[in-house]
Each structure stands twice: as structure tokens, then as C-alpha cells.
Design a binder for these strands. Structure first.
Lengths: 210, 210
DNA sequence: AACAAGATGACCAAAGTGGTCAAGGCAATC
DNA sequence: GATTGCCTTGACCACTTTGGTCATCTTGTT
């Protein structure tokens, strides 16, 4: 994993992105076994020979993507201020970083989602190994240092968190469908997201904390 | 569509269900073109010859399912009391009927969801034709006769409805993942759903209406 | 035993699979 | 202009999978 993929990394960055996105899309849509390298090169606009020049096999390509996306996700966690005590401010921050990544790699999150459910024997062991690490880190850090005292006490906290997460997920999905290939929507999406955060604040915070 | 599929309909109902579920699952997972009739017959536990005896082609099978599922969804709408003015009571009712259908055809909703995004030229025209009708009916009836006066007035209604829908969707998905092949979970799921409805009520209704 | 109705899976041509490699393009050096 | 070395290309390979067929076998009824 150190010197390997050197041929790929020395490509011009626009081409790299095209290949990564095409591959992420295909694997996310069809899973490992049904994903077609033919379709990937077609979408990426390169030749088959090139793809297998950069990566020696379909499996290697998949594992490269897995590693790459995991590193991107780690980057999310690194950029977030884990000292911010306000739940919604923090969630907004997290959303903002995710959105930035989504603009560059629209299928990255879908890719890891399907990777988690992948059952092709050729890649499953690697997924499991990496998956455990991610989950361990994610859950621990996730809600650390949050000031829960701001929340209403008559509502079950676990369910409340789920409602908030589902709302953010639903919103993200809606925005994704809306955009398609439109570039640079930018700030208005975040503004709309803030509307939702404002509603959730009014729902779940104590009156005097809003 | 009148006398056709007669061979299929005269099968014993358990076998019919097995075939329908296997096919819905395969099409939902892989889309029309990548779905494999081989995998369908394997999952359904019948022979290839039989499948093509009941349905003359893959396309015919797909269109049959489309029609079948659409009719099931129409049945949902027929069973709901559209006079019930309380938003959450109505949503709960709707959820209950959907849950009943989900128990019989776990992949039906996924199937129409992917069908809506299908782009295989062989079936797209039919999907579009049926799709429009569904959407027209669904949106019109959806929130008729609801007593909106019970709701807080400081929260945007459209966004609120979306939050509620995303919550129900997220809950359903979670429950689905949890169950897998476990049979007859039954009432406890609906009880847990009621917890969420209770929270949403407390969030979005005026104090005195709860 | 004779028959009909259904179910079966080996089989088919056609398409698609991951992967290879000789040939050619292209820029830099001589 | 010739030579060099690196990329890129897509025709090509052996192999698998595809949707669909059909002669044969099972099964139940009379």
C-alpha cells in the first residue's frame, strides 16, 4: 500500500477524480461482483488497458477505493471541533464537512454503505477488518462533550437522536436527488439545512435554551 | 393482462408468493437489466422451465410485478380512513397497513422505489405511464381532511411533514434491517413506532392538543 | 395402464466477464 | 529527422453468464 498505485497517483488530478468517481459509482450501485470494469472505463472515459495498468485487478481497484474512502472519512473526523458542546452546532459542522466531500466524491458515502453489506468472498475479510476500526472510532467520539442539559427531559434521548439523524439523512438524500449534475449549488443548501436545525432546536431544546 | 398469467395464478398460493418475492428481491437489488432469471429461479426453488412457462419472458415477468405491486399499493389507499382528522392517527394507520403488506412482500416497496429510477429502455415507457397515475392519486389524497389547527404555528408545515416522513422511513428501514429472516415480530414493532409518534406529537402539536 | 399437465435441467447462441498485449501516439532528447 | 521511453488504446482471449427452449421425466387421475 506504500509505493503501490504509484502509476495511478501520478495522473493529472482531474483524470484521477474521474476514475475514482466512476468506480465508486459502479461499485456502489452494483456491489463488488456485479460491478463491471467495462462500465467503469466507459464512464471514466479511459481505456480498459489503462485501468489495468493503474490497478492490476478489479479486486485491487476495489481495495484501493475502500482505503481511499476510509481515509476521507477519517479526515472528516479530524476537521470537526469535538469540544463544541452544542449538539446542533456540532451536527451542522459535521454536515458541512460531509457536504464538501460529497461535492468532490458524490458516491463515496453510498460506496461505504454498500461495502458494509458486501458479501463477495474476495473482499469481505478486508472490509471487516477496516469496518471494525471505523465503527469503534466513530461511536466513541460521536457524542463526546455534548451538553445534554440543554435538552428537554421528557423525551427519550436515544430516540430523539435517531429522529435528528434520520432528518439529516433524509435531507441529504433529497438534496442529492435534486442536484443531479448541477454544479456549485453551495450556500443555499446549507441555509436550508439550517432551517431544519432551527426546527429541531425548537422541538428538542428546553424553552429557555433556544 | 386479462386472461394472461393464468398459468401462474392457478399455482398454489405459497409457491406464487415464493416466486413473487424472489423476483421482487432480485429486481429491486439489481435493476431490470442486471437482474438474473437464473438467480430468481434458484431463490424461488423452481426450475427455469417453469418460470418461462408462467411468464413468457423476463420483460413480461417484470411488467407483471409492476402491475401487481401497484395494485397492492392502491389497496393500501383503499383501506385507510381518509376522514380521520388527526395527522398522527392517520399516519399510524397507514404505517400499520404498510407493515401488513411488508410482512407478505418484504421487497415490494424497494421494488417500486428502484422501478421509479429504472432506465432500461425495455420497460421504461410502461413504468412512466403507471408512475404518473400513482403520484397523481397519492399526492391528492395524502393529506386531505387533516386538522392542521392542532399544530404549532411557529414551525413551517412543509418541513415538519418532511421530518415526520423521514422519521417514519428511517424507523421502517431500521426495523427491516433488524428483522432479516425472523418471523412474526408483530406487535412490539408497532408499539415502538407509537413511541416515535408520541415524541413527534409532543414536538409539533400545540401544548393543549397533546 | 394410459393419459394429460406440469416440472425439470441440459442445452443453445449470444452477450458479457476480467484481464492481456502488440501496436501506435507523443513528447523529449540526441 | 531519428531515436528513445512512456502512456494509451482497443482488439482479442478464454471463460462465465445471459434469456430462453424443449425433449424428457414426475405426478396424479381415471
Amino acid at each position: 500500500m506504500i509505493i503501490i498505485y504509484q502509476k495511478f497517483f501520478s495522473l493529472e488530478s482531474e483524470k484521477k477524480a474521474r476514475i475514482i468517481n466512476a468506480a465508486l459509482k459502479e461499485f456502489a450501485r452494483n456491489g463488488y461482483s456485479k460491478a463491471s470494469t467495462n462500465d467503469i472505463v466507459k464512464e471514466a472515459g479511459i481505456s480498459k488497458g489503462s485501468l489495468f495498468n493503474y490497478f492490476n485487478s478489479k479486486r485491487e481497484l476495489y481495495l484501493f477505493l475502500l482505503d481511499y474512502v476510509v481515509k476521507i472519512i477519517e479526515q472528516i473526523y479530524a476537521e470537526v471541533d469535538w469540544m463544541e458542546p452544542d449538539f446542533f452546532t456540532r451536527m451542522r459542522q459535521l454536515g458541512e464537512v460531509k457536504y464538501k466531500i460529497y461535492k468532490k466524491y458524490p458516491h463515496a458515502f453510498n460506496f461505504i454503505k454498500t461495502a458494509a453489506r458486501e458479501d463477495a468472498a474476495e473482499v469481505k475479510p478486508e472490509i471487516n477488518r477496516i469496518g471494525k476500526a471505523i465503527i469503534a472510532e466513530g461511536l466513541e467520539r460521536g457524542y463526546q462533550n455534548i451538553d445534554w442539559s440543554k435538552f428537554r427531559e421528557d423525551i427519550d434521548r436515544e430516540r430523539m437522536i435517531k429522529i435528528i439523524n434520520w432528518t439529516m439523512l433524509g435531507f441529504a438524500e433529497e438534496e442529492r436527488d435534486k442536484v443531479k449534475s448541477f454544479e456549485e449549488v453551495g450556500t443555499e443548501v446549507l441555509k436550508e439545512a439550517d432551517e431544519y436545525f432551527s426546527i429541531l432546536r425548537r422541538c428538542f431544546y428546553k424553552k429557555e435554551e433556544q
